[in-house]
Design a protein around this nucleic acid. Structure first.
Lengths: 218, 218
DNA sequence: ATCCGGCTTGGGAAATTTGCCCGAGCTGCA
DNA sequence: TGCAGCTCGGGCAAATTTCCCAAGCCGGAT
């Protein structure tokens, strides 16, 4: 058990962009009570770093290449149910937020939030509370009122594959990233199309973009 | 004209994530010769900030909500051809890189790069040189071997077919619409892919959207 | 405890599309 | 006249998509 409560909050940073980690580190450490004790740049290393440093809070970006961030959350929580995980990402799609909380996240803050919101969220999560940024709360509220987007009928794996596909990845690349057979990815591709009603790959990309799953550099 | 050459390099940061800007700011300022003189969180504000502060280098992320980062580049360069712009983003697709350079960027660095690479790139760009991270150079090299330029290599018919395709039309619909055989549309589809270098239909849609051929957000 | 339903993973096989090569008609232009 | 480039489509092997099916797993209901 970590006994750093009196001296501050220890943080494990997980994000695939080095300079982004550097930046977070400096922002967080300037707070005085927050200490970044380790970093990881992929889901696979995240648990190792967690085990080695037993941080009070894990701050992670779910959109990393390769293995799913959601998987990393489940991975950590499965072996250390005490773990407090704060998802910190650019994505703000309701299905993703729900998936993250279901996977065991304690908080969800978007990168659009003010730095102070992130810091506050970390403190709240460390205290065992649930935390989310205002925009996320708003999105979840909207979502609970609406009948649900086309993406709501998709499972977690389907969402992940759709994200990569819409991002321009080939079937082989997706299969390699997710350690699946090409056949399985093809089947998901087909399944996603039928579930969403998209008749064309282009329609699928447009749908993904419209739902915020993929950003297109208009 | 900015006369800060002797005292360092002034930087304008454009990124839609506040904490990411904060982080960059700290990383850059710890270098001593780099000074962040302004920030902007969207393309529209970018030019105003540029005009007000006349920075030596603009560091911007092209993937911002709403208006395009590419547009912002064109915007700034059109009115201030002296401007040095370093694109700094998570995207690493060849078409995007080319589009950025065509729009007037002086450099392109991915967020997967080491912080030192970003700093080096800023200094090189400020000196008037072109700069890009190793992964980008690699991607462009690969791309140049397989030929394939951008969208302006396409003929009238090809553009029209790409527009309809990216808009979500099926091959049959396009054929019917243009009074062509399905075979011809298929051939165009293939031709367009090879000409643009898109390996995937999704990449084609993204390319079309990036070039303004298709609007995705209704 | 058991069953049901949904998610995930993949095999199989027919139908369709892609990848690439080809020729032919048209136009503009040197 | 002749070349060059766009438009249009045939052909055919290779790859992918489309469906249908099954098995393992897990969580919730009975």
């Amino acid at each position: 058990m970590s006994e750093v409560a009196a001296t501050g909050i220890s943080v494990l940073l997980v994000d695939d962009h080095p300079i982004v980690r550097q930046g977070y580190r400096r922002v967080l450490e300037s707070q005085g009570d927050l200490h970044v004790v380790a970093e990881a740049d992929n889901a696979a290393d995240a648990y190792g770093a967690f085990k080695a440093h037993d941080p009070d809070v894990v701050v992670l970006d779910i959109s990393m290449p390769g293995a799913s961030g959601l998987e990393a959350i489940r991975n950590i929580r499965a072996r250390s149910p005490r773990a407090r995980i704060l998802v910190f990402t650019m994505h703000n799609e309701a299905v993703l937020v729900k998936a993250a909380f279901n996977a065991g996240a304690s908080g969800f803050v978007t990168k659009s939030s003010e730095p102070s919101a992130v810091v506050t969220a970390i403190r709240n999560v460390a205290r065992g509370e649930r935390a989310m940024s205002d925009d996320i709360a708003h999105i979840l509220a909207e979502d609970s009122l609406s009948a649900g987007s086309a993406l709501d009928q998709l499972g977690e794996r389907e969402i992940e594959i759709l994200r990569q596909f819409a991002g321009g990845a080939t079937t082989e690349q997706i299969a390699a990233h997710l350690n699946l057979s090409i056949k399985t990815v093809q089947n998901y591709h087909y399944l996603i199309k039928t579930k969403t009603g998209a008749r064309t790959d282009a329609q699928l990309v447009r749908l993904a973009a419209a739902c915020g799953l993929t950003r297109i550099w208009r």
